[in-house]
């Protein structure tokens, strides 16, 4: 983290160079048009300055060809900007398949992160260099925004739902983490560090602060303690549907609609089970709103996601 004066931010993610390239293209277009307009305005203002009070210049009402020209050229340029920007944006929505998932819960005014292996940290996030990281973001109170200037990405963090973002760091170091969405009194104090480490250092770091309980294990414990396991049996004989292989698959609902079982769906089904009822099941599940924390829900989701893999490993054995 440089404390000196600079005019351009550090590049530390795979996205940074791509955003900067587009930015420089835009700068090029902007500098061209600003120079053109400044030059023409100054040139005309000097060349055609009023030389006598009674000057009466010839009227020029307009020129259709010229009008079409300066509609079509900017339109073409803006469409290039649109497509280029949209492609980049599209990629920010789609993390690579091998991305490691880390959960981040925001609250006034701190960032809480939990790694899959169970390590927790506050206002810091340690990640390995060269590995795609997908963040599952949610807030306990108001809207925040996870912003890492060196990575050129940000995403709002909302209460009551998950948003996701991903990045792949390219350079070890420590980078600013800012809350970019105004969130109350200590908004400017809701800052932290992203610490990018060599993979070996990261593994060592993981071992250092180990709790011994991974996200999945914590989720499994919670799953037992809250009594979820009574009805959601792996073989489907319980009162509720089996959750094995549920994640990412379409779920048929009562009334014929189908939804994809993503994080937001599972979250809603825990907190407000009657919102979407699975076809052929009775709405008997109790409401867990207020009984489980945001971190707890994330652990449950991690456990549900792991069920398919666990089941496969068990049957192979």
């Amino acid at each position: 983290m440089s404390l000196g004066f600079s005019l351009f931010p550090e590049q530390a993610s795979t996205m940074a160079g791509r955003v900067d390239a587009l930015f420089f293209f835009l700068i090029g277009v902007a500098v061209f048009f600003v120079s053109l307009i400044f030059f023409l305005v100054v040139f005309f203002a000097v060349k055609y300055r009023r030389r006598s009070e009674d000057e009466r210049p010839m009227p020029i009402t307009g020129n259709l060809a010229l009008e079409i020209f300066w509609i079509v050229v900017p339109l073409g340029l803006t469409m290039v900007m649109f497509i280029w920007g949209a492609l980049l944006f599209f990629d920010t929505y789609h993390p690579p398949k091998n991305a490691v998932e880390i959960n981040v819960v925001a609250k006034q005014w701190m960032w809480k992160a939990q790694h899959p292996q169970g390590q927790r940290e506050i206002n810091e996030l340690h990640v390995p260099v060269g590995q795609a990281i997908k963040l599952m973001l949610t807030s306990e109170d108001v809207i925040h925004d996870f912003f890492v200037p060196a990575f050129r990405i940000k995403k709002d963090v909302l209460p009551g739902r998950y948003t996701t973002m991903w990045f792949q760091a390219t350079k070890p170091g420590a980078y600013h983490l800012f809350c970019a969405q105004y969130c109350g009194t200590q908004h400017s104090g809701m800052i932290g560090r992203i610490v990018v480490m060599e993979p070996a250092d990261y593994v060592r770091w993981l071992g250092g602060g180990a709790t011994g309980v991974s996200m999945t294990e914590a989720g499994e414990k919670l799953f037992q303690r809250l009594g979820c396991s009574t009805c959601h049996r792996p073989d489907g004989t319980g009162q509720g549907p089996s959750l094995v292989g549920l994640f990412g698959k379409p779920v048929e609902l009562q009334g014929g609609k189908t939804v994809t079982a993503d994080e937001n769906y599972i979250r809603e089904s825990i907190l407000d089970p009657r919102a979407k009822i699975t076809a052929r099941y009775q709405p008997v599940m109790p409401i867990f709103k207020g009984l489980v924390s945001e971190e707890g829900i994330l652990q449950l989701i991690a456990y549900i996601k792991s069920l398919e893999r666990q089941e496969r490993e068990r049957t192979q054995r």
């Binding site: 835009l26 900007m81 649109f82 280029w84 920007g85 949209a86 944006f89 920010t92 990405i153």
Partner: peptide, 9 residues
């Protein structure tokens, strides 16, 4: 700011 890829920054 209208360009999506730059707006995210």
């Amino acid at each position: 700011v209208a360009t999506l890829g730059v707006n995210i920054h």
